[in-house]
Design a protein around this nucleic acid. Structure first.
Length: 572
RNA sequence: GCGGGAUUAGCUCAGUUGGAUAGAGCGUCGGCCUCCGGAGCCGAAGGCCACAGGUUCGAAUCCUGUAUCCCGCGCCA
């Protein structure tokens, strides 16, 4: 993978300014910003220099304009700004060639070569209702894992199942009361039992105590209790894996909190030597002099059983021993910020130098779901509905002869999935949103299907045009809409890098909308003016150039969508 | 009460980490198919960036208050 064209010109611009001013490029670099398109591609505001140079910013900019010169850039001052615009030649050809030569790897880099990131994502609780925030964790985590892989990192994705804890006691004891033995293999039934047992435990202390006692038996290694646990665990897991397969999500590791069963003593013993670890109200707690008004970390309950904080301490330790990670991400809802803050700080207090490499990649809650009543919209349900909506349109398109497919349902599923994945990823992680089925099922406007559609049309015009040409003349691409499109294509490597650095897939999602919009605008010109069509008649050289551009668009969209986990059908 | 987050167009959200006239989608209104695919394109209307101060050449962005909403706060995860 070669240096992105955009980066190359930007670095040259920065270097030339630095030289003209007699400064280091690192001093100039942070000040160079993308320009307003009407002024160019890059801009350098001269305000910060005014004091040191004792000159008015416009005068500085005008002066720089005479001194700064970079091949391939048109440089000019505009008031207090020094602007640079990519010259059509050779920029257009360089960008298209780079995209086409890198193909599905366009946007990838080797920046993370030799580094390892551990990503904890999805991580549903077994035998509890599958809340929608697990879906967010799954999709966000999957996109982030893909992004890291694309930047050359070794990725260890862990689905850290919540497969240990009191909730198993609730399900086990609840099963005796509410369970139907014939349905013990059905997840839906287990969830139903859990909801009832949970409600009962809140008002019935004796029942709650029985659930606790069951979990205590598990921690003590009681074979009968563990056998039942194993069964519930397998039932849930089987169900989860079906969903993951449909979502196209894979993990390097499936493991869970149970992994640390019986292995927490070492950690607890170690913390116990620290000041601040003590017994309180019968429980073992860490109460180091952190912030005031902050609750302590609970390591053991008054009945001696462990809590998830204890298991997370053991897990972090274990993960470092196994992977020696450079970064470890926890893709978990914002609700748990306090937990992670305390977890990271406790590890630091324990003298783990790698505690600083742990990052809570938080995300906002999904409202509009009544979890407590056990009334949830299941993901598969939403996927099914989205597929049904897509299927109507697919059939319509088949009937009209616009597309061919031997499996309309599979295609419709890809479109429905695209709508849901993209709908979840287009906003910043931290944004809360209400679950709105209508919004997820609308395929108009800036949605997943909009992107898929742009990609499919690019594929289609390439097919009709006899494929992407081996050679073409980039100087024939002179329409403003074509240049705008090339500028967008050039940004993909910059955006994937930034999205990875910020653990923020929405940056990529939003960018792809810009690409698709620029493509649609250009493409639609041909509706009115035939000489602006890609497959323009009677001008083979221009046609070839436009096909090459279309090919670069196709590659950019396919590469970006794949990273997000959005399927890219070639027609739809 | 304490801690964290949020507040931008009627609705849902961006806003390149302090830079040029604050942008999209949806919705509303008006245009574009004998035409490479209309899941598309173009245009219009719509803003005291919650409020009040402050820092700065420059603030939606940083600081301090205030208001409203959401989340979290010892034996769940």
């Amino acid at each position: 993978m070669s240096t992105p064209v955009y980066d190359r010109y930007r670095a040259a611009f920065v270097g030339a300014i630095a030289q003209a001013l007699g400064q280091q490029p690192e001093e100039i670099d942070p000040h160079v910003k993308p320009a307003d398109p009407q002024h160019g591609d890059l801009s350098f505001p001269t305000f910060p220099l005014a004091k040191a140079l004792k000159k008015a910013p416009p005068a500085i900019a005008a002066d720089l304009a005479t001194k700064v010169s970079v091949p391939g850039l048109q440089i000019a001052s505009a008031g207090p700004y020094l602007n640079a615009r990519f010259l059509l030649q050779p920029f257009v050809g360089e960008v298209i060639d780079q995209a086409r030569s890198e193909g599905e790897k366009y946007g990838h880099s080797e920046a993370g070569k030799g580094k390892t990131v551990v990503i904890d994502y999805s991580s549903p609780n077994i035998a509890k209702p599958i809340a929608f925030h697990h879906v967010r964790s799954t999709m966000i985590g999957n996109a982030i894992a893909n992004l890291y892989r694309s930047q050359g990192w070794r990725v260890e994705g862990i689905n850290y199942l919540g497969d240990w804890g009191k909730q198993f006691g609730l399900v086990a004891v609840g099963f005796q009361e509410y369970g139907d033995p014939a349905r013990r293999g059905e997840v839906a039934h287990l969830v139903d039992v859990y909801v009832k047992a949970n409600a009962r435990a809140e008002s019935d202390p004796e029942f709650d105590e029985r659930a606790r006692a069951f979990f205590r038996r598990m921690e003590e290694g009681d074979q009968e209790a563990l056998a039942l646990w194993e069964e519930f665990r397998e039932t849930s897991l089987r169900d989860f894996k079906r969903v993951y397969e449909r979502l196209g999500v894979r993990f390097e590791h499936y493991e869970g909190e149970s992994r640390y069963q019986g292995k927490m003593d070492a950690i607890i013993d170690e913390i116990a030597k620290k000041p601040g670890t003590k017994e309180s109200e019968g429980a073992l707690i860490v109460d180091m002099p952190y912030d005031e008004n902050e609750p302590p970390v609970l390591l053991k309950k008054n009945d001696g059983t462990t809590l998830y904080a204890t298991r997370d301490l053991a897990a972090a330790h274990d993960r470092y021993e196994r992977f020696h990670f450079d970064r470890a991400l926890y893709v978990v809802a914002t609700d748990q910020s306090l937990h992670f803050k305390q977890l990271f700080r406790t590890l630091k207090e324990m003298g783990r130098p790698w505690a600083d490499r742990l990052i809570h990649v938080n995300f906002g809650r999904v409202g509009g779901q009544s979890t407590r009543k056990g009334k949830l919209t299941l993901l598969t349900q939403v996927l099914d509905e989205a597929q049904a909506v897509a299927l109507e349109k697919v059939k319509e398109n088949i009937a009209a002869g616009r597309i061919q497919t031997d499996d309309a349902e599979k295609l419709a599923d890809a479109i429905g999935l695209g709508a849901i994945v993209f709908g979840d990823l287009k906003n910043r992680r931290v944004t809360d949103y209400d679950f709105d089925l209508e919004a997820f099922l609308s395929f108009e406007g800036h949605t997943g299907p909009y992107l898929q559609y742009a990609h499919a049309r690019a594929c289609n015009v390439l097919r009709r045009g006899g494929g992407a040409p081996a050679s073409y003349d980039p100087s024939l691409l002179t329409l403003p809409e074509e240049l705008a499109l090339v500028r967008e294509i050039a940004r993909l490597p910059v955006v994937t890098r930034e999205a990875t650095e910020q653990n923020e897939p929405s940056l990529l999602a939003r960018y792809l909308l810009d690409v698709a919009s620029a493509f649609s605008r250009w493409y639609t010109l041909g509706n009115q003016e035939r000489d602006k069509r890609v497959l323009v008649e009677g001008n083979e050289p221009v046609k070839h150039a436009r096909l090459a551009l279309t090919d670069a668009v196709r590659i950019t969209l396919a590469s970006g969508l794949t990273l997000l986990g959005v399927p890219t059908p070639e027609n739809m």
